[in-house]
Nucleic acid binder design. Structure first.
Length: 862
RNA sequence: GCCGGGGUGGCGGAACUGGUAGACGCGCUGGAUUCAGGAUCCAGUGGGAGAUAAUCCCGUGCGGGUUCAAAUCCCGCCCCCGGCACCA
């Protein structure tokens, strides 16, 4: 016996699949389509277990859908722009492009070793001008429609990295790359008007309900953060100007005791200049900017000061003092608020600190609020009091009526505000897609002509030693001519946030070589993505941006769909146990002795076994996919990953567990070796197997039951772990029955042929190489990768007998094998004859008998 | 604090619409094979009482409830994980 040799088998089939282009697809309207997509990777250098899990899940789905007769689109590519390439350039002196492309080559090879059924002809990298030129075109069209604009705003700035950072790149107020304290800086940059789609992005979440994880829907909903309220004008006589504020609680309007402006508010500056405390305001503004992170975390003290100015209450005409306060954000609402200390905790704290009055205007039903006794604001709804004609109204009704009156007097209006901000896409980085804009001395901001695209990122740039973008210093890039007037102009040197590339790649995969952005025939056939799979960490950013882009591309006339991803599966992390030495910190598993002591530097300290955590180098708990593939083969790795946990849950990597998966495949392989020579020449027709009896019938029934279960778990539920368990259970059963089944009998050989074929077919989506190999050795001259999902005979599934559970008063007391379809009466008379049952019935009266067909009988006695 | 998801053997996890809790795998124990180890195979494996038997009791985070029957449904509570959190 030669035994199972995964590396030989896997290499062989990967080569054949590639040569024969088994997974190449074309649009074919005569066939139902299925588009399965996994979030494409950033080419960081090597794939990790998280990728392997993501792509294994996708590949199983792709293979199952192919077996079910779908025309399956399953592409792969590279999210290839990004900062790590520049870091590598800095550290290792390799050009970002070279670094990126060589990583891609390496990682492509790694993916190929896993046997994923991608149509590799569709592969692209987003750093390719042939890809990003369309992105530049979209941007220009967005600019033309006012969906892309330039503005000055507060951004996160890292001085040492010389760039703006995205919010998610700021950790604890520090730069994720160098640890430098991030500053808030006012800068100009490009923004995409995602807020114009806020309402649609919110309401379309309804369409995704039931198809996306509830968690993701909720996160997006919160992120968009719709709130309904009113904008109210407070007149400032001294300036003869209105201050407009936003509130969601117009019912508390009569409780206003002061107004607060953000220190960034233009009116605050105007007042400060007029009153001669400009310096004080600017100082305050600076301090607030510095402490912005703290403020956002809610740990900063309330601070601010009186602006020595008053506004007029729209209804009471009272004088209301104006303050500036650190907790008022310029970017939300109007940058100014009305403060009702009795009914808003923040205002309450501010009022207490500055000795401002507290005025109760909402009374709860069960108690009476008294300002002097209050220790916190009462924020819940109640009955309006001290509110002129509104007194006595419920909060909800009051809100409406107050706004109605404001509107009728022209002092305010209904307003919906979103928490969502426009998407800042400018990055002061080199390794990204150039923003196709030119600054002309005469014409100002001018978009490039579309025929000049792509604006190529110059590849001959040298990254400077401080990691700054070289683009502003590259004369041949910067110095250009105005597309409008032909005069001298400067090119924009910022590049796009890399989330832009990943916002539309799924659509380009349908027609990667088409000279225009999209071929309608392809996009209309393949889109939307039927199943999207990726990590939960993209729950908001990437998924929201991609949804936004889809709607924009629709409105620009490129696509005909509202939502890009019909179904979303967010897979859990791959985690592993951690080891920690009191002296050395995190240590590798090899550094732990069998006695549980630390072996590093012969240290001998007792090692603390930590809970399983996300694999990371710093915690010394990474498992390298390459090492696992080399040791066990891709099929084993795939099997373990699919078996160890359901897709959405975290998967704990276990060295023992993967051994178990390997063992299973070896068992299957050895089993086949034993029979394959005989079975190779056997042919059978399903009708020939209809009249089996005894052991053979039972085996065949188990087979068909297994096929059905695998079908349900793989195709309908994506519960690969239980489907695989069913296959394992069947193999256990098969090995038992083979001991008693005479394999020299022809009919049994025919049965075994069916058994082995269907078994391989069921396992093939998970472990394609070994199944392809054994399929061939079973005498097949087709690819199992192109075979159909096995069928099962529904009639055969029914057992002739079943185990009837016998309960007395709801407790299981006995079981008895009875014919299927047994009636209540027959079952009861059988059951009453059982000695155990008789024991329990002695001296009791039967009060009730519950009979669940094919399941149990429950005798209720007193 | 708010929102979402969970709590089942020594471990990962099954149990789909209430109907034998613990499938499958890991680990562990015993046995076979082996000079030995590994690998492989066979048997056992929720806890407790009992003699290793028959048998019985207890068991799905905790406390109640509905039901002939609850991991599953209802009410109250505890704990864990994830997200959000001065957004007016």
């Amino acid at each position: 016996m030669k035994g199972y040799n995964p590396s030989a088998i896997e290499e062989k089939w990967q080569k054949i699949w590639e040569e024969k282009k088994v997974f190449k697809v074309k649009s074919d309207p005569s066939k139902p389509k299925y588009y399965v997509l996994e979030m494409f990777p950033y080419p960081s250098g090597r794939i990790h277990m998280g990728h392997v899990r993501n792509y294994t899940l996708g590949d199983i789905i792709a293979r199952v859908k192919r077996m079910k007769g779908y025309n399956v689109l399953h592409p792969m590519g590279w999210d290839a722009f990004g900062l790590p390439a520049e870091n590598a350039a800095l550290k290792q002196g390799i050009h970002p492009a070279k670094w990126t492309y060589s990583n891609i080559d390496y990682m492509r090879n790694q993916l190929k070793k896993l046997g994923f059924s991608y149509d590799w002809d569709r592969e692209f990298a987003t750093c390719d001008p042939e890809y990003y030129k369309f992105e530049q075109r979209f941007f220009i069209e967005m600019f033309e429609r006012g969906l892309a604009y330039r503005k000055k705003t507060l951004v996160n700035w890292c001085e040492s990295c010389q760039t703006v950072l995205a919010n998610e790149q700021v950790e604890d107020g520090k730069c994720w790359r160098c640890g430098e304290e991030v500053q808030m800086r006012e800068m100009e940059g490009w923004f995409l008007k995602i807020t114009a789609y806020a309402e649609e992005l919110l309401s379309d979440l309804e369409k995704l309900r039931g198809h996306w994880p509830e968690k993701v829907l909720v996160m997006q909903k919160n992120w968009i953060g719709k709130s309904e309220g009113a904008e109210i004008d407070f007149y400032i006589p001294e300036l003869d100007k209105n201050l407009t504020i936003f509130t969601t609680r117009p019912d508390t309007l009569f409780g206003v005791t002061f107004l607060s402006l953000s220190p960034e508010h233009p009116l605050a500056l105007e007042i400060a200049e007029k009153k001669g405390f400009k310096e004080k305001l600017l100082e305050f503004r600076e301090r607030v900017r510095r402490e912005r992170k703290k403020i956002e975390e809610g740990v900063a003290e309330k601070e601010g000061f009186f602006l020595e100015t008053y506004a007029v209450h729209p209804f009471t005409k009272e004088e209301i003092p104006l303050y500036t306060a650190n907790f008022v954000l310029m970017e939300y609402g109007t940058g100014a608020i009305m403060c009702v200390p009795a009914h808003d905790q923040r205002d309450f704290e501010f009022a207490k600190k500055f000795g401002l009055p507290i005025k109760v205007v909402i009374q709860p039903k069960n108690k009476e609020l008294k300002p002097e006794e209050m220790e916190e604001a009462y924020e819940a709804p109640g009955i309006m009091v001290n509110s002129q004609e509104f007194t006595g109204l419920e909060s909800e009704e009051g809100k409406k009526r107050v706004i109605d009156k404001l509107e009728s007097l022209g002092l305010g209006k209904r307003k919906i505000t979103y928490r969502l901000r426009d998407w800042g896409v400018s990055r002061q980085r080199y390794w990204g897609c150039p923003i196709p804009i030119v600054y002309c001395e005469k014409c100002g901001i001018v978009p490039e002509k579309k025929e000049n695209l792509p604006i190529k990122l110059p590849l001959d740039a040298q990254i400077d030693s401080k990691g700054r973008s070289p683009l502003p210093h590259l004369k041949e890039f910067v110095e250009t001519f105005c597309p409008k007037c032909g005069g001298k102009a400067r090119r924009e040197t910022d590049t796009f946030d890399t989330f832009v590339e990943s916002s539309w790649y799924f659509a380009r995969f349908t027609c990667p070589d088409y000279p225009e952005p999209f071929n309608p025939e392809d996009t209309e056939y393949w889109l939307p993505v039927d199943q999207y799979i990726g990590g939960i960490e993209h729950a908001i950013l990437h998924l929201l941006y991609a949804r936004f882009f889809t709607k924009v591309l629709r409105d620009l006339g490129y696509l005909k769909l509202d939502e890009p991803f019909s179904n979303l599966l967010t897979q859990g992390m791959v985690i592993k146990e951690t080891y920690r030495c009191p002296k050395h910190g995190w240590i590798y598993p090899e550094e732990v002795s069998p006695e549980g002591t630390c072996l590093r530097d012969h240290c001998g300290e007792k090692v603390i076994i930590g809970k399983p955590e996300k694999m990371s180098k710093s915690k010394c708990n990474v498992v390298d996919p390459d090492v696992m593939i080399k040791k066990y083969g891709a099929d084993t790795v795939r099997l373990f990953i699919a078996f160890a946990a359901p897709p959405e849950k975290d998967l704990e990597w276990s060295d023992h567990g993967i051994e178990g998966a390997y063992r299973f495949l070896k068992r299957i392989y050895n089993l086949f070796e034993e029979y394959v020579e005989i079975l190779k020449k056997i042919n059978y027709k399903e009708e020939e197997l209809k009249n089996l009896s005894g052991k053979a019938l039972k085996l065949r029934r188990k087979l068909h039951q297994m096929v059905k279960k695998v079908h349900q778990d793989f195709e309908e539920r994506f519960h690969f772990n239980t489907g695989i368990a069913a296959i394992m259970e069947f193999v256990n059963y098969l090995q038992d029955s083979l001991k008693e089944l005479d394999s020299s009998e022809e009919i049994n050989q025919k049965l075994l042929k069916e058994v082995f074929e269907k078994l391989l077919l069921c396992l093939s989506p998970v472990c394609p190489h070994i199944c392809e190999e054994l399929w061939e050795r079973l005498g097949k001259n087709t690819f199992i990768s192109e075979a159909s999902f096995p069928t099962w005979e529904e009639d055969l599934l029914k057992e002739e007998t079943f185990i009837l559970v016998v309960q007395i008063n709801g407790k299981v007391r006995d079981q008895i094998e009875v014919p299927s379809g047994i009636s209540k009466e027959d079952a009861l008379s059988l059951v009453r004859g059982l000695p155990k049952v008789q024991k329990y019935l002695e001296g009791k009266t039967i009060r009730n008998v519950i009979f669940i067909p094919e399941k149990l009988v429950n005798i209720v006695v007193s």
